[in-house]
Design a protein around this nucleic acid. Structure first.
Lengths: 174, 174
DNA sequence: TCAATTTTTTAACCTGGGTTAATTACAAAT
DNA sequence: ATTTGTAATTAACCCAGGTTAAAAAATTGA
């Protein structure tokens, strides 16, 4: 189910009800979370109160505020449950240390970070090369289930446009 | 100098003159490159011929087309020398295998990928949350040397705008 | 030094998306 | 069923940035 064996063995279960926060921007939560069930969103809020969504998390997904976890800084984004969710957490530093001690764990971590890097490069590609309309089409195509589960507001904030703009894009496409 | 000991020991030197390609979009170059000297740009070209820049590479930097290297697909971008450059390369699969065998190498790889992930998250943040003007100011602030070395064209294509737009942004700021 | 080329700026015009606000459509709860 | 709140659509207006083209400035090379 989960790529990180270490989390299975050493993780602590965390349950969050719909609309609960796992952590908030400004916290210093240094944990890595693996999602077992449910649906969550990781999102930034700007000083002016504007929201943008970094990613959606579904079962099998993992997330940590890497800067918070690794550089001991405050979390730069919020993690909020969109549905009742079950997660498992471990202190990032424990995982990091365990990898230093144990080859197999270092490999798990490498593979996790390789997948994460590829995902983030993909997103970079989309922002650099695709229009908002194309990003929407790609997202809809790759995440047919999410399209119904999420509000248009959240989808728009993930794509980097306003909900009003996304409404116009959808109209254009039909 | 270089974080990846493995490359120092097993890498092959590669020299490229200014305006030479290290690899091109469509190639299946499965190597990881570490930059020893010089300056390069990694960039996409769309089917319509539009260019966008993924990243600039300076001494100490490392790059691979991760999908090409790991998933055995074709490179999705070009790597071009903006100045005469020296690089060292290793087959990504050799590095991956060596990490499987040797704990220390797995750790080097983990650390490299952790840094890469953090950089890419940073860029995601910038596209999601900053205007073109703010991205330019941040880039100029964090890369004072590059600002003189690069053409405005390249800076613009890195920021995700046209050179004309960047010229306007600079005018606005002075 | 002068011609050729590349880079940068400027201008005119257009378009996608932001903003605000009002309207409509849905959903949940009593 | 009716209220209450939330989500989505629409409209009007504005602006940043795209596009095209021309002009000016800076580099490069012979």
């Amino acid at each position: 189910m989960n790529n990180l064996d270490f989390i299975g063995k050493h993780g602590k279960a965390v349950s969050v009800a719909k609309h609960d926060y796992v952590f908030m921007q400004g916290d210093d939560d240094e944990n890595l979370y693996a999602v077992r069930s449910g649906l969550l969103k990781a999102y930034y809020v700007s000083p002016e109160g504007k929201e943008t969504i970094k990613s959606f998390l579904r079962p099998g997904g993992m997330i940590a505020s890497l800067t918070a976890a690794h550089k001991k800084e405050a979390c730069t984004f919020n993690l909020l449950a969109l549905e009742d969710s079950q997660l498992v957490k471990v202190a990032f530093s424990d995982l990091y240390e365990a990898a230093n001690q144990t080859h197999a764990i270092a490999l798990e971590m490498r593979d996790f970070l390789l997948v994460l890097s590829m995902k983030k490069e993909q997103r970079e590609y989309e922002f650099l090369n695709l229009s908002a309309e194309e990003r929407y089409q790609k997202f809809a195509h790759e995440n047919p289930e999410l399209i119904d589960q999420l509000t248009q507001n959240d989808i728009a904030r993930y794509l980097g446009v306003t909900p009003v703009a996304l409404s116009r894009i959808k109209k254009r496409l039909r």
